[in-house]
């Protein structure tokens, strides 16, 4: 994956690039908005990571300029903590996701991974399949190994979100945002509770587990390896 990072804090930039490069990705770094904008229009990237507060040209203006110029590359904003309105402003400026600083690299990596896959997801899909688990999006039916699995609406949505991102790690916060539209961090482990209820229906009665917990509190669904 080719990633463009526009971040003026050297330490954060180093932390992020190191992470992506270790994962085998290409990550270009620019420390001010003007250079970032120039680079983004000159080369093609899979994902852009842009800090809100930048010297030269701030992240919001940079995103607006890029969108005005017709660049559709997925863009994720990094925002400082406490900014209640940052998400809405960021999305309005043409951002696709946002992440609050300070963040764990795993969270950023998961979001970048999900964003990069987006175009493929937009194709019309009516049936999702993972190993022997099948989800019919039109009939709202889930079967595993031919056996019907009865799910509550939110459980269905949770499973659908996981299945659409097969093999990708979705963090707790990402699930909260995508399944429940919650944009704050609950103090209790409610997401874990929902996942374990889902597991009880999808995995427990069967031999192999499909839903996996990854370190740094993320979840993914994939066939046994």
């Amino acid at each position: 994956m080719r990633i463009l990072l526009v971040e003026d804090d050297a330490k954060t930039a180093d932390y992020v690039t190191r992470g992506f490069r270790e994962g085998g990705h290409v990550c270009d770094v620019f420390s001010n908005g003007q250079d970032g904008l120039f680079q983004a229009t000159r080369e093609t990237y899979d994902v852009m990571i842009v800090d809100r507060m930048l010297p030269g040209l701030d992240g919001l203006s940079m995103a607006k300029a890029l969108r005005a110029a017709g660049t559709r590359t997925p863009l994720i904003f990094l925002t400082s903590i406490g900014g209640v309105d940052d998400r809405v402003e960021g999305l309005e400026a043409g951002g696709d996701d946002y992440l609050t600083k300070p963040f764990a690299f795993a969270e950023l990596a998961a979001r970048v991974g999900a964003l990069a896959r987006r175009p493929a997801m937009q194709q019309e899909v009516t049936v999702l399949k993972v190993h022997d688990l099948q989800m019919d999006l039109i009939r709202r039916r889930v079967t595993r190994n031919g056996q019907e699995v009865d799910l509550q609406p939110k459980e269905f949505m949770l499973l659908e979100t996981l299945m659409r991102n097969e093999g990708r790690v979705l963090t707790r916060t990402m699930l909260l945002e995508r399944v429940w539209d919650f944009h704050f961090d609950p103090q209790t482990s409610v997401v874990e509770t929902h996942i374990s209820r889902l597991r009880a229906k999808v995995d427990k009665p069967f031999e192999t587990a499909l839903i996996h917990t990854t370190r740094s509190s993320g979840y993914s669904i994939h066939a046994p390896r």
Partner: peptide, 8 residues
């Protein structure tokens, strides 16, 4: 919100 927390 209640549905979200019901399981917990």
């Amino acid at each position: 919100v209640v549905e979200f927390y019901r399981a917990a």
